[in-house]
Structures are given as structure tokens and as C-alpha cells.
């Protein structure tokens, strides 16, 4: 009897352990996704091999073109160092880091990610940072990128907040897609709130694992980086010459089916009306 109980307890324990491990694995792998069909950045100056691909991060210093000067330079240096350290040290569940090695490097001839200060990001005015990646036309390899930081973000956000934002943007450089479901997933690629404060709590094990997937098998990733190019439109664009006027408020017509309910009775016709049930069958609005 004791042996049987021990056996059952053992089976139960193994089951619980398996379940816990599978949940942990799912949490690790479930949120981050990567860009499909492109070649990962091979590494800049200082690269020693495919498992040590150096990404040189440089911030602009010009007086009249996106430069970080004085206190701004000090702050962005802290942000860059922090973000580089985040990516270089975080590991996946198997204790592997990504094959990328981020390095602050002000040598302009060696930079791979150029960090520029801009008054605003005009195509999405309440954004704080944006990454513009340049894939090689022939090979599809991501060769370099420009990371835009707004003056408002630099002034109003803390170093830690900016570091999370930069972690997110550098995640794009090394292949990660945005994540739109912060409520159920935790990933550095989550979206923001209150303008540009990231929800993310930092780089997750799943993020590191997905970067490794991106490098080793980009065809196994989810979707391409550029959704599709916009069509070129010129000459003021197409305008409908006869637009249909639109008036407010619109008028909608609701059509009901009415079904009368009768019960049998001792009366003329043998049935007595007791009520009507209405069903909405169609709606027509004058758009």
C-alpha cells in the first residue's frame, strides 16, 4: 500500500513539475515575435564572429544638425550605456545572450546606429523615439539604422524611462517586432502609455530567445519588417471629382418583423391575440 501511495505521489509530482515547466516555457516564448525574411546585421567594427556581432552606437554631436550637447550629451550617454548593457547581459531560459554586442562608440566611421536629437517626430507627433533601419537592397541585411530621440522626451523622461525606450528600439534593430498585447504578454517590445512611457518592465527571456531565432532562422519569424511600400502619389494625389456629400446626423431606418402571438380561446375565430414580438431584421442608413 505504501509503495502504491509513493508511486502515485511521484506521478503527481512529475505531472505538476511538467505543467510548471511548460507554463514557464510558454511565458518565455509566447510574446516576442521577429521580422521574417531578412538577414540579421552581421556586425560592425570589432566583430569577431557570428556570435559576437558588435553594434556600434553613436550619438550625434553637431551644433546644427541633431547633436546632443552639454547636459543632453551626458544624459544620452547614460541612456546608451544602460541600454547596451541591458541587451548584452540579458539571457534566455537557456542562459544564452543574443549574438549582438552593443557598444557605445563615438567613432563616426564605425557607427552602425546613429542617434539623432530632433525637435519632434513629425509623422507621429507624440512619439518619443523612432528607429529607421536601412536594409541592403541586394541581400536584405540590416546594415545600419538611425534612432531619433525628441527633445521633449530627452527633457521630460528619466534615464530609466529613456533606457527602456532605447531597449525597445534596439530590439527592432536586432529583429524584434512590436508587441500589441501588453495586458497578456510581457516583452520589451510592448507599446507605450501616456505618450511614450513604455509598459515594458525590461528585456525578457523570451525577447532574447526570439532574437536568437531571428538570427538562426529568420524564415521562421512572423512577418516582414516593412509592411509594404506606400504607392508613390504625385500631383496632389487622387481626389474624387464627384464626392458624395455626407451630412450629419445620418438617418437610419430600422426594419422590424412583427410576429403576433395568439392563444386558443372560446371566442370568434377560436384564438385571442395576446401580444406582438418584434425582431430587428435590417438597418439602412443614408451614408
Amino acid at each position: 500500500m505504501r509503495i502504491l501511495l509513493c508511486f502515485m505521489l511521484g506521478v503527481y509530482s512529475v505531472g505538476i513539475l511538467s505543467y510548471a515547466l511548460s507554463e514557464a516555457y510558454t511565458a518565455d516564448a509566447g510574446c516576442a515575435t521577429c521580422f521574417k525574411g531578412e538577414k540579421a546585421f552581421a556586425g560592425g567594427a570589432g566583430t569577431t564572429g557570428p556570435d559576437n556581432r558588435v553594434v556600434n552606437l553613436r550619438y550625434a554631436t553637431t551644433q546644427n544638425g541633431g547633436g546632443f550637447l552639454g547636459a543632453d550629451a551626458t544624459k544620452i550617454s547614460q541612456v546608451i550605456s544602460g541600454a547596451a548593457n541591458d541587451w548584452n547581459t540579458h539571457r534566455d531560459n537557456n542562459q544564452n545572450t543574443t549574438p549582438f554586442n552593443f557598444q557605445p562608440n563615438q567613432n563616426i566611421s564605425q557607427m552602425n546606429v546613429n542617434i539623432v536629437l530632433v525637435p519632434k517626430i513629425s509623422d507621429h507627433p507624440n512619439a518619443c523615439m523612432q528607429l529607421l533601419a536601412a536594409p541592403d537592397k541586394n541581400t536584405g541585411e540590416i546594415t545600419s539604422a538611425t534612432l531619433y530621440v525628441t527633445t521633449a522626451a530627452l527633457a521630460n523622461r528619466t534615464v530609466d524611462e529613456l533606457k527602456l525606450l532605447m531597449d525597445h528600439e534596439l530590439g527592432h534593430f536586432i529583429g524584434l517586432r512590436d508587441n500589441y498585447n501588453n495586458a497578456q504578454c510581457s516583452s520589451i517590445m510592448s507599446q507605450a502609455h501616456d505618450g511614450c512611457v513604455p509598459y515594458a518592465k525590461g528585456i525578457q527571456t523570451g525577447d532574447v530567445a526570439k532574437v536568437r531565432d531571428y538570427v538562426s532562422n529568420p524564415e521562421g519569424c512572423w512577418d516582414k519588417r516593412g509592411a509594404k511600400p506606400h504607392n508613390i502619389v504625385s500631383g496632389g494625389g487622387y481626389t474624387d471629382p464627384n464626392p458624395i456629400p455626407d451630412y450629419y446626423p445620418r438617418t437610419c431606418y430600422y426594419f422590424y418583423d412583427a410576429v403576433d402571438i395568439y392563444v386558443s380561446c372560446d371566442c370568434r375565430g377560436g384564438q385571442r391575440y395576446v401580444g406582438t414580438v418584434y425582431y430587428l431584421t435590417d438597418v439602412f442608413c443614408n451614408y
Binding site: 552581421a42 567594427a45 550625434a60 546613429n114 538611425t146
Partner: peptide, 20 residues
């Protein structure tokens, strides 16, 4: 060549035009 490949594009552009 390998190490400078990714940075070649920056050689010919004035610094204040980088990213524009």
C-alpha cells in the same frame, strides 16, 4: 573590408546631414 562594410555609407555624408 568586413568590419567597415556597415559603416561605409557614412563616409561620404557631412555629419550634420546624417539621419536626414
Amino acid at each position: 573590408l568586413y568590419s567597415s562594410k556597415a559603416s561605409m555609407q557614412t563616409q561620404t555624408i557631412p555629419e550634420d546631414q546624417l539621419g536626414t
